[in-house]
Amino acid sequence: MKIFKWVLRVLPFAYMAAIFIMSSLPADHFVKLPDSQIDHTIKESLHLIEFAILYVLLVLAMLTRRGAFTSALNIACAVIAGLYGISDEIHQSFYAYRSASWFDLVKDFTGILVCFYFIRGALFKGKFMGLGKVLGRL
């Protein structure tokens, strides 16, 4: 169980490194679908989940700590994910083959806020009992 907790603690940093590396590469470096419109739509929609995943990984890492997971710590996880989203857009603006936009940031924040709603509800509002049980086991 200790190894699992340490993996959860390291995952956010590994994921942040992966985001940084992928943001440095052309959008079609790993996958390019034959239909360019579908390719573009899928890759743009990934903004909705990319930083939501980072937020969830940060929450999971914090849940493995000995201290209580507070509402303030939950907000801090969301803010850190959002700030990393901003830094990612700034990072992408330095590459000619990448783009940075306010709309991408809105998508990043939307994904974070949706996950924040569910995690806050599960851990602090008595909603989503199944999710609360899973998160409470860490």
Rank of each mutant, 00 (worst) to 15 (best):
F4I: 15
L8M: 14
P12G: 02
Y55K: 01
E44K: 11
I49F: 03
A52E: 00
A72V: 13
Q92E: 09
F116N: 03
K32H: 09
K43T: 13
A78F: 01
I42Y: 12
P26L: 04
R9F: 10
P12D: 04
F13T: 04
H29Q: 09
V79I: 15
D39W: 09
Q92D: 09
K5W: 06
V114W: 03
C115G: 09
A17G: 08
V7F: 15
C115P: 13
I80R: 00
T110G: 00
G111E: 01
L123D: 04
F94T: 10
V134Q: 07
V56T: 08
L60S: 07
A17F: 13
L123E: 03
E44I: 01
I53Y: 09
F69N: 01
S101N: 11
L58Y: 05
K107I: 01
L33K: 05
G130E: 12
G130Q: 11
F20M: 06
F51I: 10
L105T: 00
I75T: 15
G126P: 14
F30I: 15
S93W: 11
L60D: 06
A81Q: 08
V59C: 13
R98C: 03
Y55W: 03
L33Q: 02
K2Y: 07
I49G: 07
A18F: 14
L83R: 00
L83V: 11
